[in-house]
Lab assay of single mutants.
Amino acid sequence: KRLCLVCGDIASGYHYGVASCEACKAFFKRTIQGNIEYSCPATNECEITKRRRKSCQACRFMKCLKVGMLKEGVRLD
């Protein structure tokens, strides 16, 4: 089984260019469509796991980008 490159949960397929789970796919889409900017309360190096993926949105979004999710893949309509 493929794992989500962002949080390590089971991937539902390839989304925005990267093997990812439904939760991270939806999080990435919401962030881009809403043009949301997050800031990390710590040092921008929070560990993102299935259990902790909700704890820091800034680091989760940075990890989405780091593993290769493409903003261009999100439709803005």
Score class of each variant (00 low, 15 high):
Leu70Gln: 11
Leu3Asp: 14
Lys54Phe: 07
Arg30Asn: 05
Tyr38Asp: 00
Ala11Trp: 12
Gln33Arg: 06
Gly73Gln: 13
Cys46Asn: 02
Leu3Gly: 09
Leu3Cys: 05
Gln57Tyr: 06
Gly13Asn: 05
Cys40Gly: 02
Arg75Cys: 14
Leu65Asp: 03
Cys59Pro: 02
Arg60Pro: 01
Asn35Trp: 06
Leu3Tyr: 15
Gln57Lys: 09
Cys4Asn: 00
Lys25Ala: 15
Leu3Ile: 15
Ala19Phe: 06
Asn35Ile: 03
Ala42Asn: 13
Lys50Trp: 08
Leu76His: 12
Ser12Pro: 08
Lys25His: 15
Arg30Leu: 04
Arg52Ser: 08
Gly68Met: 01
Cys59Trp: 02
Thr31Gly: 04
Lys50His: 12
Cys7Tyr: 00
Glu37Phe: 01
Pro41Ala: 13
Phe61Glu: 00
Arg60Leu: 15
Cys56Val: 03
Ser20Val: 15
Gly34Asp: 14
Glu45Arg: 11
Gln57Arg: 08
Ser55Gln: 15
Phe28Asp: 00
Phe61Gly: 03
Asp9Leu: 04
Val67Cys: 11
Cys59Ala: 02
Glu22Ile: 04
Met62Tyr: 04
Lys29Glu: 15
Glu37Val: 04
Gly34Pro: 00
Phe27Val: 03
Gln57Glu: 12
Glu45Phe: 06
Lys1Phe: 02
Thr49Gly: 11
Arg60Tyr: 15
Thr49Leu: 09
Pro41Cys: 11
Gly13Lys: 06
Lys66Glu: 10
Ala26Leu: 09
Ser55Asn: 15
Lys71Cys: 12
Leu5Asn: 07
Leu3Glu: 11
Glu47Val: 09
Gln33Asn: 05
Arg60His: 15
Arg60Ile: 07
Met69Tyr: 07
Met69Leu: 04
Cys7Thr: 03
Thr31Tyr: 06
Lys71Thr: 09
Cys7Gln: 00
Gly34Ser: 12
Ser55Arg: 15
Phe27Leu: 08
Leu76Arg: 10
Val67Arg: 05
Val6Phe: 02
Arg53Lys: 12
Phe61Leu: 12
Leu3Pro: 05
Val6Glu: 03
Ala11Ile: 05
Met62Glu: 13
Lys29Asn: 08
His15Ile: 09
Ser55Gly: 15
Arg75Trp: 10
Leu3Ser: 11
Tyr14Val: 14
Val67Ile: 06
Met62Pro: 00
Leu76Pro: 10
Arg2Ile: 15
Met69Phe: 13
Gln33Ala: 10
Phe28Trp: 14
Cys40Val: 02
Glu37Thr: 01
Glu47Gly: 08
Thr43Val: 12
Cys4Ala: 01
Asp77Leu: 08
Lys63Leu: 03
Leu70Phe: 10
Gly34Arg: 11
Tyr38Glu: 03
Gly73Asn: 09
Gly17Gln: 02
Ala42Thr: 12
Ala42Lys: 10
Ser55Thr: 15
Ala19Val: 13
Leu3Thr: 11
Tyr16Pro: 05
Glu45Val: 09
Ala58Cys: 05
Phe27Asp: 02
Arg52Gly: 13
Leu76Thr: 11
Arg30Ile: 01
Gln57Met: 07
Lys63Thr: 07
Glu72Ala: 10
Lys54Ala: 12
Phe61Asp: 00
Tyr14Phe: 13
Gly8His: 10
Asp77Thr: 11
Lys71Pro: 08
Gly8Met: 08
Gly73Phe: 05
Lys1Glu: 09
Ala19Thr: 10
Arg30Gly: 12
Ala19Gly: 03
Arg75Asp: 13
Lys50Leu: 10
Lys1Trp: 05
Lys1Asn: 13
Cys24Pro: 00
Lys71Glu: 10
Lys29Ala: 15
Ala26Phe: 04
Tyr16Met: 07
Val74Lys: 09
Ser20His: 08
Gly68Val: 00
Gly17Ile: 01
Arg2Cys: 09
Ile32Cys: 01
Ile36Pro: 08
Cys59Gly: 00
Asp77Cys: 05
Lys66His: 08
Ala19Gln: 09
Arg53Ala: 12
Gly68Trp: 01
Arg53Thr: 13
Tyr16Lys: 06
Ala42Met: 11
Val6Cys: 02
Ser20Leu: 08
Cys64Pro: 02
Lys63Asn: 03
Asn35Asp: 14
Ile32Pro: 03
Lys1Thr: 08
Asp77Ser: 11
Leu76Val: 13
Leu70Lys: 14
Lys25Tyr: 15
Phe27Met: 04
Gly13Ser: 03
Ala11Gly: 12
Tyr14Ser: 09
Met69Asn: 02
Gln33Pro: 03
Glu72Asp: 12
Cys59Gln: 00
Leu76Phe: 09
Cys46Glu: 03
Gly8Ile: 03
Val18Ser: 05
Glu37Met: 02
Gly8Val: 00
Val67Lys: 09
Ala26Val: 14
Ser12Cys: 14
Lys50Tyr: 09
Ser20Pro: 06
Thr43Gly: 12
Arg75Glu: 13
Cys4Glu: 03
Cys56Pro: 02
Gly17Ser: 07
Arg75Leu: 12
Lys29Val: 13
Gly73Lys: 12
Cys21Tyr: 00
Arg75Phe: 12
Leu3Lys: 07
Glu37Asn: 03
Ile48Ala: 08
Glu47Thr: 09
Tyr38Ala: 03
Val67Gly: 05
Ile10Lys: 13
Gln33Met: 06
Ile10Phe: 13
Cys59His: 03
Phe27Pro: 03
Asp9Pro: 00
Arg52Tyr: 04
Lys54Thr: 11
Ala26Cys: 11
Ser12Trp: 07
Ala19Asp: 13
Cys64Met: 06
Ala42Glu: 13
Lys50Ile: 14
Lys29Ile: 04
Ser12Val: 13
Tyr38Thr: 03
Asn44Gln: 12
Pro41Tyr: 12
Ser55Met: 15
Arg52His: 03
Lys66Arg: 11
Thr49Ile: 06
Cys46Asp: 01
Lys1Ser: 06
Asp9Arg: 04
Arg2Glu: 09
Arg60Trp: 15
Gly73Ser: 11
Lys25Gly: 15
Glu22Leu: 07
Cys56Ile: 02
Gln57Val: 07
Ile32Thr: 07
Cys4Arg: 01
Cys40Met: 02
Asn44Asp: 14
Cys24Ser: 01
Lys50Pro: 12
Phe61Arg: 04
Leu65Val: 10
Asn35Pro: 12
Ala19Glu: 13
Ala11Val: 06
Leu3Arg: 08
Phe27Trp: 03
Val74Ile: 11
Phe28Asn: 00
Ile36Ser: 04
Thr31Pro: 00
Glu72Met: 04
Lys1Arg: 06
Cys59Ser: 00
Arg51Phe: 08
Val74Gln: 12
Val74Glu: 13
Asn44Phe: 13
Ile48Asn: 15
Cys24Asp: 15
Ala23Asp: 13
Val67Gln: 04
Ala26Ile: 06
Val67His: 06
Cys46Ile: 00
Pro41Ser: 09
Lys29Gln: 14
Phe61Met: 12
Glu72Ile: 06
Lys1Val: 06
Glu47Arg: 06
Cys46Arg: 02
Ala19His: 08
